[in-house]
Amino acid sequence: MNLFNLFLKSVFVDNMIFAYFLGMCSYLAVSKTVKTSAGLGLAVTFVLVITVPVNYLINKYLLSPGALAWISPRLAEVDLSFLTYIFFIAIIAAIVQILEMIIETFTPSLYSALGIFLPLIAVNCAILGCSLFMQERGFSNVGEAAVFGLGSGIGWLLAIVAIAAIREKLRYSKIPKGLEGVGISFIITGLMGIAFMAFMGFKF
């Protein structure tokens, strides 16, 4: 598949939030102001661009059926795919930890912007979900996996900044009492999701 095509598809059509509902928890919790949500969005994009290709390599050379053949032909029949979850989550947690340390040492300004969000990201379902989708779709090379990670991250960033902007404006509107806060955010996300569905066309 054309890389640019894949990028656009993962940003709009397969948007992590509106099509798959991944990372909803932090999406709802952190989207109070545009500034913090942009910070979290950037951190998610950053981590996705790194974890998806790394997990792609892990999956290709370690976990998928027959992947161990490069070590010795005797291992060609080993299928470790049942270990996928534990490997992926361990890799993600480790990369997030390492990134946190690297960013803290080399770019303190970026660290103060992203800092509090980085530990949260290890348990953000968008990150693990993106790796699992990558495994399910079977991309043919690392480049495609990286582009998929980048696209999904940018899609997520777009979604969280959009809802944060709407919620900032919403503070001045009159909402039925029971609907205030979380309730209205759900309904707005639903409406935005319907709008995003126009990218793939309605199928009834």
């Binding site: 099509a19 509902f21 979380v182 309730g183 759900f186 309904i187 996300t189 639903g190 319907i194 569905m197």
Partner: peptide, 24 residues
């Protein structure tokens, strides 16, 4: 429309609304 993913959000939004107004 109910099968499409965004409707799930709207249904949950309504459930939260009902629950909140009952608790209040």
């Amino acid at each position: 429309l109910m099968i499409l993913p965004p409707m799930a959000l709207i249904v949950i939004g309504i459930i939260i609304w009902i629950n909140n107004s009952k608790t209040e």
